[in-house]
Amino acid sequence: MTRQLITLIVNGDRYQVPVAPCETLLDVIRDRVALTGTKRGCTSGACGVCTVQGDDGRAVLSCLALAIEWDNRPVTTIEGVAGGDELHPVQKAFLEYGAVQCGACTPGLIMTAKALLDENPDPDEEAINEALAGALCRCTGHIKVKIAVREAIKAMAADAAPEDGHGIQEG
């Protein structure tokens, strides 16, 4: 099968990868770029564990995206969410509020929540439900996930609030 050389930009890193048209973005991210945080689940768009963030910031099902269509288009995976050792507020909230059981769905849920909050920092209940409906946890359900997302919203709003003049900013 003819392969075509593409430049995949994952979390800001560039990878030159020869891909066949039938390789999905998921296949290439996991098996060629070796970033296995993005999970392979139903491979038919129903479970959301393969969610990554596309170049428009929106949640993309990498199992239903052809890698060849992502030539030179930046993608963010779960590995690119934390800033160095500092976890993203959504990741912190998932840890703190125990929004995880077996963990297989967690990368997809975090990418889904991050994509939602990047576009809308103050989503209402309906918007949260609408986004999370596309990423499933089959261990334990979405209650703790929703608690974590709501707490992440609060934490991000507090971070974004203007300085009140007291104290010295860390770092």
Partner: peptide, 12 residues
């Protein structure tokens, strides 16, 4: 339109 699939699906 909003009833189609999930938000992930509608993004694509």
């Amino acid at each position: 339109i909003r009833a189609v699939g999930s938000q992930h699906v509608r993004n694509m």
